[in-house]
Amino acid sequence: PESADLRVLAKHLYDSYFKSFPLTKAKARAILTGKTGDKAPFVIHDMNSLKAGEHYISFKQPPVPDQGQQQNKDMEIRLFQSCQFRSVEAVREITEFAKSIPGFVNLDLNDQVTLLKYGVHEVIFSMLASVMNKDGTLVSCGQGFMTREFLKSLRKPFCELMEPKFDFSVKFNALELDDSDLAVFISVIILSGDRPGLVNVKPIEDLQDNMLQALELQLKMNHPDSPQLFAKLLQKMTDLRQIVTEHVQLLQLLKKTELDMDIHPLLQEIIKDLY
């Protein structure tokens, strides 16, 4: 009966994952391998194709009071603003998913804020791997594909932003998790009882313990030939914390050095006093 409960929990998380996140790993891999039957994504590999892509793809841009001023900003900054806008959407999606985790909304409200503040970027980079391969990343809900080389060719420090995420993604994708595994994995990340400043740790640890059991069973059932997968996946959580620390340091540097660039208020409150 205990195992049955854990399977029900995993199924529930899988269902809410589908409701919360529009681009699943299954869909992204189908696009990346040309198995959708739809037209292939528009490839952005240099500044010219980026400009062309801006007309071809419906890039979502943050609402800015002065569009003219935005147009005058250099390509790196405009590209970064699009990334930020996508990150804000992702935070909204992850928050909705977190609220569907059984027991999450009953936690102390301050602790819910803390868990999201520390967890969202780790979840974002876990899920970013789903839309990446060693050569590039899907953008704009899979309408475009931006090459890794192009991102590496941007001026400093923008060129340093994505490379660690590609390195992580290649290793993470080698574990061959699917969406049902990721749904439980990101729940484990969110329910981390060691985040700084938590008021009431015990109920979070209890929820995470149960979630870890659900993850272990999920991986045993879904990957019977990979007995070490659970242990390997837990090690990835350490890598994720390192990536987030470096990412936040880079954002803080950009905030100081790129005076033309605005950091979205939601991202500002997340990264402020984070690490």
Binding site: T95, K99, L109
Partner: peptide
């Protein structure tokens, strides 16, 4: 904490937040 994380707090309390 609530004061320093007004938008996160709003997202937790309300799913729409269409002005973001």
């Amino acid at each position: 904490l609530k004061e320093k994380h007004k938008i996160l707090h709003r997202l937790l309390q309300n799913s729409s937040c269409s002005d973001l």
